[in-house]
Design a protein around this nucleic acid. Structure first.
Lengths: 337, 337
DNA sequence: CTCGTTTGATAAAGCGCTTTATCAAACGAT
DNA sequence: ATCGTTTGATAAAGCGCTTTATCAAACGAG
């Protein structure tokens, strides 16, 4: 029922070695006849190599670990799908972990994955990741002994990553709002330890500055990227009557805001122009489709995988840093004032 | 940097065997002193067992395969998150594959996972799964040699599963619409090979029947559970002016319908009462929150995991079938006629 | 005809861990 | 003092595959 190389060898009247050599296309010095015979038998028996044994002797598992903070966040969902698909196209399998947005979860996941023999790890770091002790993180990465690269994050540490140009994205969004006559633009930021959140915040400020508009602390609100945090923030934002537009660090928080408004019966789309971040699916189906900054998840996963496989295969061990340019998707949520 | 048992043995001046025995809490006949010493050293060296070696000798990997048709479908996303979390709480890891909603993808995933030594597989079958040759499926499951159970699907085959009571769910939804005075209720069904789709269709019919309402073929439309198929169906549905309510086999197709209406400028919420299926997140944030049938993904994953682990651990090899009761979530999309 | 070389195939060691059978020493009972 | 037991620890085989060193036979050149 479950056949191994030994069974094939027996059936073909050759040695174990020969079978292994043939199935791995390793030695040319075996008669073509036997080669074909062996391959035929292997197919016939539906032979599947025992990966544990292969891993043990070759130290290659063709497994890649993927860690995301929260699979439920549509941006990560999409990213996961791309990564899974592209990895499979390259002959790799995905060992998946949702870290629950915690550094502990990430740490355990990494250790576990390494012990399970993954060939490399793609890590989409949680917001806690960057508040962890930097030295500890670096030793953890070194000790892993396998390449680990960061997605959707930047760092000064000696670690490769691919990230979006967040300040550029936030600037574009801010500009769009300003171009429509808005002057009192609220900003919903994420937590500071998330570098991406900082960068978007910075982009917002830069956007104002570029247009000689004053930056006012009172117009910035802090959430944690969850829909729920947007929900919590809603009353405070609504209270400030000067605000005519909102730029949010991601779509999700805007969703929370919309939900709250719906419950309270306030017509939020009429009151504010809004732009989000991430081009989440569903931003198309809400009451008025959301203008948003698109982060090309497919490109990110392509670049990241290419980078990782290069590290795995070659001894190409320089640390690389790739920045992807975001783009503005204009829909209906931005109006002239 | 990367230590193995041999290193521990050397440092503790004992044999490899002793170390293994101690770290697995296998033999009581070793002095407590040495036990503590060995454990201390192991911790100190941050010893992580090489899973490939463990798997090879114990034939247990603590890996569970999870296959879903499309991680992008919010119901599966949520399910995946629960499964991942609960599996980890039980000391297991998730080998994840998005089958791309194809039988081929599922088949390859299963073979691959088995060859990678998973202890069992949780399969959320694609719509193609049930149109595959039944005998082939059954041999594939037998040959796997590891327990495989189905989620979110039922079957007459000799395979364990946990599913929702779809006919009940659809009946409840239909009743809700009827109770609000609707008589011309459109139904958006899924493809017939998906048993769940059939069951929901059946529930819709039963609901009508129970209220002595005529069933009319002209009011049923067929999609494929994707948001896009709802989008495609929209014009046909809108054309039939008699329709006052829509029951959809899932939320997603309703989303597609809503998107189309938005683009065409038709006020769909005013025109129809609607109820969906799945209680997807985001059904709360659309223009008018959707009344929907909730499928408890958390309970499903709990039951499935419990079932699977039982099979893995004990030789508990009867096939079990669990049906979970759905419930109606009343929101704003159903009005009196 | 002999010897170096090529061709075809295999034996054996190793990957890191588990587990069983075995061994040595200490102990207790007669 | 002797022998069966218990206690503490280890040697060795095995898991399924890869890979290197080795071997035997056939071949070709001088």
């Amino acid at each position: 029922m479950k056949y191994g190389m030994k069974d094939i060898a027996k059936k073909a009247n050759v040695s174990l070695t020969t079978v292994s050599l043939v199935l791995n296309n390793k030695e040319s010095r075996i008669s073509t006849q036997k080669k074909q015979e062996i391959k035929r038998i292997a197919k016939e028996m539906n032979y599947q190599p025992n990966s544990a044994a292969v891993l043990l002797s070759k130290q290659i598992s063709y497994n890649i670990g993927l860690i995301v903070p929260d699979i439920t966040n549509p941006f990560f969902t999409e990213l996961t799908q791309f990564i899974n698909r592209q990895l499979r196209q390259n002959g790799y399998f995905t060992l998946f972990v949702d870290s629950g947005n915690s550094y502990l979860g990430e740490k355990q996941a990494i250790e576990n994955m390494i012990s399970r023999g993954v060939d490399g790890i793609l890590l989409v770091p949680s917001s806690e990741f960057f508040s962890a002790d930097q030295a500890e993180v670096e030793t953890m990465f070194k000790n892993a002994g396998k390449p680990i690269i960061l997605l959707n994050a930047s760092t000064d540490m000696d670690i490769s990553y691919v990230n979006f140009n967040n300040v550029e994205g936030a600037m574009m969004a801010t500009q769009e709002l300003i171009d429509h006559g808005h002057r009192n633009i609220a900003f919903i930021k994420g937590k500071d330890h998330l570098v991406n959140a900082q960068e978007r915040y910075q982009g917002y400020k830069k956007g104002l500055e570029k247009n000689q508009l004053p930056f006012r602390k009172a117009l910035v609100f802090e959430g944690d990227y969850s829909s729920n945090s947007g929900y919590q923030l809603a009353p405070q934002i609504l209270k400030q009557s000067a605000i005519t537009a909102i730029l949010s660090s991601n779509d999700l928080m805007l969703f929370g805001l919309i939900k709250w408004s719906k419950e309270q019966g306030v017509d939020i789309f009429n009151r504010f122009s809004m732009v989000g971040f991430d081009n989440t699916p569903y931003t198309e189906i809400i009451e008025v489709p959301l203008t948003t900054i698109d982060q090309d998840a497919e490109k990110m996963s392509e670049d990241a995988i290419k980078m990782l496989l290069k590290k795995i295969k070659g001894k190409h061990d320089v640390t690389e840093k790739i920045i992807i340019q975001p783009r503005l998707i204009r829909r209906k949520s931005v109006k002239f004032i």
